[in-house]
């Protein structure tokens, strides 16, 4: 095993590298096309779709920003994502904590845990059709309604992840805190929350990406009111409007991807952890 690094394993490694490089090209090539096209004029693309731009023009980006309210959609997405994440942070760990500490001794909490878990088995399409009418009845066919839905649909998986995590944290610390005069809320907020920070970070990153990228729910709830569109919804509608302007279409995709790309570069560890934890438990 260690003595002779034989030719066979060397060849295998070279083949592995070649396959992986081919895969990387498959992943990166669409981005390459997107970038070069976004910086070219329509005439240039018509002449040669694959050539690098002769002059890197920003007209397409300006076009997207001028012809649409890009910044409005961007801020809509930010508002919806941030509000959902704040609400998830406030309500979900609190609920998971109560469940984790009582589910062995009190039926209500045990029931609640499995009751919330049910949603994992229900495909979104099941509530999608009623939601169209129901959210209208509630007067919530708007961003507020969308935020409520995001928080609700995030809660099943998040409670599952957090409850199991909190149960692995011994209750001694919060008990001594409450003996020292901490209120139950204080014990939770100042003692428990800091201890479960890693899992909360995972849950929040996972859901931030999910909310930011979601297309189906905004399409359902917000599509008739353009002022309330999120970025994915804007992209979809923009594309149907400017079908033949590839350059501007690619520019619009690129400016939508850049924020996520930046987040990925700076928080890759958390994002990978969050998405894989999410996959494991869904």
């Amino acid at each position: 095993m260690k003595k002779h690094v034989n030719i066979g394993s060397l060849i295998f490694k070279i083949v592995a590298l070649i396959v992986l490089i081919f895969g990387v090209l498959m992943i990166l090539y669409p981005f390459y096309i997107m970038i070069i096209t976004a910086f070219k004029t329509q005439a240039e693309s018509a002449a040669d779709f694959f050539a690098l731009p002769a002059t890197w023009t920003t007209d397409n980006f300006l076009g997207v920003i001028n012809k649409s309210n890009y910044f409005m959609y961007f801020s809509n997405s930010v508002i919806i994502t941030v509000s959902s994440i704040v609400l998830i942070f406030l309500f979900v760990p609190m609920c998971a904590y109560a469940i984790a500490r009582n589910m062995r001794s009190r039926k209500y909490f045990k029931f609640l845990f499995y009751f919330l878990l049910c949603a994992i088995f229900v495909p979104f399409q099941v509530i999608m059709v009623p939601l169209v009418i129901y959210m209208g009845w509630l007067g919530l066919s708007n961003q507020t309604g969308l935020i409520c839905l995001h928080v609700t649909l995030a809660s099943s998986q998040a409670i599952f992840l957090l409850t199991n995590y909190i149960r692995s944290v011994p209750p001694d610390l919060e008990e001594s805190a409450s003996i020292d005069g901490c209120t139950t809320w204080g014990a939770y907020w100042r003692v428990v929350l800091p201890l479960v920070k890693p899992m909360i970070a995972t849950v929040l990153v996972l859901n931030a990406l999910w909310v930011w990228n979601d297309f189906q729910m905004p399409l359902l709830i917000l599509n008739t009111v353009p002022e309330s569109w999120t970025l994915p919804l804007f992209q979809y509608n923009f594309k149907s409007q400017y079908t033949y302007d590839y350059n501007m279409a690619f520019a619009s995709y690129l400016i939508a991807i850049v924020p996520v790309m930046i987040a990925y570069i700076f928080a890759q560890k958390y994002i990978v952890e969050g998405l894989t934890a999410g996959a494991v438990k869904t």
Binding site: C95, A119, V126, L131, C148, Y188
Partner: peptide, 25 residues
């Protein structure tokens, strides 16, 4: 008792935005 309160927001949202539409369906 406080722990019961802790579960209320999520329970209410879950009922209003998930269970009701599902049974409506």
């Amino acid at each position: 008792q406080v722990h019961y309160l802790f579960t209320l927001p999520i329970l209410i949202m879950y009922l209003v935005f998930f269970i009701v539409p599902m049974f409506m369906g």
